[in-house]
Design a protein around this nucleic acid. Sequence first.
RNA 1: GCCACGAUAGCUCAGUGGUAGAGCAAUAGUUUUGUAAACUAUCGGUCGUCGGUUCAAUCCCGACUCGUGGCUCCA
Length: 685
Amino acid sequence: MTRDDEQPKERKTLDERARMTELERIRHSAAHVLATAILRLWPEAQFAAGPPVENGFYYDVELAHRISPDDFPRIEEEMKKEVKANHVFERQIVTREQAIKDAGSGRLGGLSERPDNPSKFKLGNLEAIPQGEPISYYRNGDFVDLCAGPHVMRTGNVSAFKLTHVASAYYKGDERNPQLQRIYGTAFKNKSEMDAYFKMLEEAKKRDHRKIGAEMGLFAIDTEFVGPGLPLWLPKGTAILEELETLAKETEFAAGYARVKTPHIAREKMYQTSGHLPYYAESMFPAMALPIETREKIEREEKAKQKQAEEEAALKKAFSNDVVKLIAEGYPREQAQAKIEQLWTNVLKASNAAHEALMAATEETENYYLKAMNCPHHHRIFAAERRSYRDLPLRLAEYGACYRYEQSGELFGLMRVRSLNMNDAHIYCAPEQFAAEFNAVNEMYLKYFKIFGLEKYQMRFSTHDPARLGRKFVDEPELWTRTENMVRDVLKNSGIHYVEVPNEAAFYGPKIDVQVWSAIGREFTLATNQVDFAVPKRFGLTYRDRDNTEKTPLCIHRAPLGTHERFIGFLIEHYAGNFPLWLAPEQVRVLTIGEDETLVQYANAIVRELRDNFVRVEGDFSSNKINGKIQAAETDRVHTMLVVGARDMEAGHVSVRIHGRGNLGARPKAGVVADLLQAIKERRA
RNA sequence: GCCACGAUAGCUCAGUGGUAGAGCAAUAGUUUUGUAAACUAUCGGUCGUCGGUUCAAUCCCGACUCGUGGCUCCA
């Protein structure tokens, strides 16, 4: 996930700054007010950058005192004073020499001059300003900051603000730079908008997939025995997971995909060839060193054994020759014995050396890796048979389990994990087939979004940066340009809304990430669609074309449902755990009013009928009061509750109650069952 | 990995320098029910782990583990 507004890779141009919205100006101004307040409390503080961000603003500060949320009230108190003073945000243009001088005297990002405490980060920021661009200060009261603006008119315009949290960040986002304290806050036009925001956050918190996942028994993360980032799918979560797989399998079957299945590990050669080891090694689990078991190794061992045998024979021969010689030379018995013992010791030494050499040959190991992606395995499936242009496009699909060694601090519920099941497929096609294939993939995305009622999404088209060819991106400038143009054309022609982001491509080609927004307002990359013009070539993948020559196919990597982990995490928040019938872990629960034997039989028959039709149904025939049973079913988020009492049984009815929608009244049993089956089949929302 | 904060029963949480409590859940009874919680009893914890301070540590200090919010990264 990238948020360009938070960590600008390149400086915003003055033009872009001028387009800042009113809310962004308020937030940016709030950052200056925050800096002013911090300086009142800690005059030695040094500031780096303080931009507006998606939900507020921050300012990076270097300060020996560790600011904690406990400090927020007094900082906010100082901020209020500054707001009340209603200072004008005054813009001033200065020369570079003047700015350097003011940074040196500690004036920038300060309330006054601080000769012993130069504004070192401001000096760094100053260097980033291109020659010829005007250098401006903004002043509010005593606080003067190097800043391109823009701001609101007066500090009094920053009326509704609140500090939210503190984090650490590296200066300019580079881990070689010093760590700063990043103080986050938010600001709004007025108090009521801010209250609405915090209310929304509160609501969002209730939808947190980790909380709902635990409540509903969908998944568990057993850090003690299994490990962090390695979720266990409990039966109810697995039910959702399998519904999604069924959906994918049906959709992909209809779209002409072929399903494959591949192992979870592969030899080092695989990832050397794919290029993942050089580019991606730190995201992979460390290698497993296994003894070499190949034919070459067996041959090598045979040779070593033979050599040892030969050496032993030679030693024996030399030894017996020596002994014969001793006898011939007529050594006295005592001398001969000592001499023979010495010769024998030499033989043993030589023999041991040969044996050790043999052992060393047998102990050679090679590295295997847990797969972090399925592509190389699929490439080898492509290579497993001779391919003709008639076989293309070849679409290989798999729900593949991958393992990525994400940094511990990155792990986050189901959203960032170390074991993941990808809705993966690779489409091998000829260049002239590319547009149609790529477009079909995009269409599939849209189809899925409709099923899940996802309305807010955005396609991010990530391209390469020519300056980083050969390092971040494979060094194939022409192929980059060509494939990027192809993708851009498809996007333009299909009319899909997209944004283009330079320098974010995969190392082997341009990609489209599909960003979706959860109800919590979190943005996630759910799905990805990548073009690969490099790796098929590295694997030597070819097909025989019409002109009877071997050609390398293009490869499209696509994962419309991303991973089970992230997608289900997202769906939990999207539906707040209230899944539609087809996805609900417990689709139906039959509740009896009382535990009369004939009634239980009637209820049990309904359970059996539904179960025979693959409906996930349970029965609650306990002696608890019906209100209590309903309460339990509602808190379990059972989609449909079928209440049966004596009245219903006599009429051949069931009383239908839908989670969140209440009692729908008694209806004929047969009709209700038929409706349920139909709704599940249609994956009705 | 880095910064900050946190960890008490299965869950939600209270609490104290003198080795712990509530509600829900679970279990066993009682109850025989009409659309969001019937009643009673019982069970349940080395207060994250390891070390230090102390006569005494769940509480104070330190390290570690894990989690949470961020940073870098990413599906």
